[in-house]
């Protein structure tokens, strides 16, 4: 039978892949994908822990909200990436270092 531990392991794996992508990729789109992976790892955890609330299905409900919010942030992020590209003619975060002193 599939235990909750298996779900949690998959979620942790997804999260790690997301973090790896976040720090190592040189393309903002790929970083965005990494963020999405981490978000989805969290949502997977919500759904997995949802079995302990069989009456209200709070976990699933919360997951739905999170997915919506994730879609919204993705849209905003893509818009930001577009603007960044317009301004710097690149989407490599390594070359966009205007944040330093």
């Amino acid at each position: 039978m599939i235990t909750i531990t298996d779900f949690l392991l998959v979620g942790a794996g997804l999260f790690c892949i997301g973090i790896y992508m976040l720090v190592s990729k040189s393309n903002l789109i790929q970083i965005l994908i990494g963020i999405e992976l981490m978000l989805n790892a969290a949502i997977l955890n919500l759904v997995a822990f949802g079995r302990y609330d069989r009456f209200n299905n709070g976990g699933q409900m919360f997951a739905l909200f999170a997915i919506v919010l994730a879609a919204a942030t993705t849209a905003v992020t893509l818009a930001i990436i577009l603007n960044v590209y317009k301004r710097y003619r690149t989407i490599d975060p390594g070359k966009i270092d205007g944040l330093k002193d």
């Binding site: 720090v23 190592s24 975060p93 966009i96 270092d97 205007g98 944040l99 330093k100 002193d101």
Partner: peptide, 13 residues
């Protein structure tokens, strides 16, 4: 302090 977001993240991690 390189101004590169990813390093910031990396060091944070």
């Amino acid at each position: 302090q390189g101004g590169r977001v990813q390093y910031y993240l990396y060091s944070m991690l």
